[in-house]
Amino acid sequence: MVADTVSAVAPARPQIRIQGVVKSYAGRVVVNIDDTVLGASPIEGLIGPNGAGKTTLMRLIMHSTALDRGTISLLPPTGGEVVLSSQSSNRMAHHGVVKSNQVIMDFDRLTVLDSLLLAAAEGTYEQPHRIFSEKTVYRRHKDEIRHYLDFFGFADPTAFALSAGEKKLLDIVRCLLLKPTFLLLDEPTAGLPEDLTDKVMVVVRELAAAGTSVVIVEHDLNVIWNLCDEVLFMAEGSVILRGDPQSIRSHRTVVEKYLGEGHV
């Protein structure tokens, strides 16, 4: 059922290939994937019960958690292959691979505007001798920052993000400002009200339409069924099923292991 072959030609959109990847904690294998490709469809959902290894897999892709063995590679549409698992975690964003955080993470001393300018700023302006470049960075990025601030309704960008929802949104906007070619979203709508969840879905659709590959881990299955072109089902560390949302939703294994009879 799992289609895991990669064509020799460059893919139409960025893909991530996971080969022979194993990760264990204290002898317990939490991820064990033989050969899987992510990004074959514009928006893919990754679902599975708690402890299936979804978040660990995302961390392995970002190399914020080290693999025990295996290889994770980025296959850009321009051809070639970038072995992500041999690179430091800060290099991922340079290759266009960006991930939002499952647990709320923020810079406690930076305002909303600070946080967004940080994400948008090019490294060349963050050198110790570039102490007069704030205006330049602001000028270069103010329009896109303003666009997202208005779209998501941040009241005062010069204030700090206080609520969990605001911090969650800020995390997503930071990811968007990095201009990802491959975006991993780990429970992006957790804790968000319905209107903002809808807005996140709009942005994700726009991004995918523009050529970005998106993979979403989400427990709000309405988001998965409504948004994703393809769904991967993980259990016990492995991707055991993949297919269109409708077929996964009604698949016997998914119903038994995850959804329960009442969901179908």
Binding site: M62, S64, S88, S89, N90, R91, M92, A93, H94, V98, K99, N101, M105, D106, F107, D108, R109, L110, D114, L118, A119, G123, E126, R174, L178
Partner: peptide, 15 residues
């Protein structure tokens, strides 16, 4: 400030 406040998050932003 970002490095001091949350190094892991800063790294995820490519820093």
């Amino acid at each position: 400030i970002a490095v001091g406040a949350n190094e892991r998050l800063a790294r995820s932003l490519g820093k």
